[in-house]
Amino acid sequence: MSSTVLHPTYIATRYVRALLRQPYYVAVTLVQPVIWLLLFGQLFKNVTQLPGFGADGYITFLTPGVMVMTALYSSGWSGMGYIIDMDRGVMDRFLVAPVRRNSLLAGQLVYQVLLTLVQSLIIIGLSLLVGARFDGPVLGMIAFFTATVLLGIAMASFSNLIALQLRKQETVIAVVNLLVLPLSFLSSAFMPAALAPNWIRAVAGFNPVNWAVEVGHQALAADTDWRFVLYHLGYLLVLAIISAGLATRAFRSYQRSV
């Protein structure tokens, strides 16, 4: 096998191993979605009775949004690992080895994808436990997982980009917090687009978080608009590629400054 496959695998293995040594980390990342699901699920139980809501139950409606937000947060922290590696000199050691920069990034993204998938499966399981129903086909579930993963890749790459450029953990934390909540509220994560004000609907059309959530609403329901799903998966793919490309380039600016 060539190094284009092997190097990312070795890098991903490093992160997975570190994660397996602290499984409680996964548990901690799930505390927030569980609170969203249980608390919001109870709090807004009755909004489904509003005319125009059109979903079975609020938990069913809320699940895609919670999954997407969880993926956003845990991908957003991705750059923190880079900063630790830079501070410790581990990054320099990788850059002095005959390894491509995109292999370093790809390995870490593979790990983020695995983490996102595990978290998503757990959240889906929890939602089903508390009464959510997903009537769509299995293919719909796959499509939504793909959307979540693509958005996660875009977010992780963006976080790595910030880390490589600005090299401060505080900055990464600030940027993630600044992005995740507003982008989530400017989407149909909590409220169907039909019930949102016009300006939010207009903004949401350009909001990648909304693309992923809408794919979820579409793909998990029985009457899926496949054209809509495919288009938005396409947008997310383009976003993920651009974001990953920019992060790879950021290695150069990091190297100029060492």
Partner: peptide, 22 residues
């Protein structure tokens, strides 16, 4: 390097093996 560039979350052997892999 001047800094001790070791992955603290991996064992000594894992650090060496990853380095060799690269």
């Amino acid at each position: 390097s001047q800094k001790t560039a070791v992955d603290l979350e991996a064992t000594g052997r894992e650090n060496l093996v990853l380095q060799g892999h690269l």
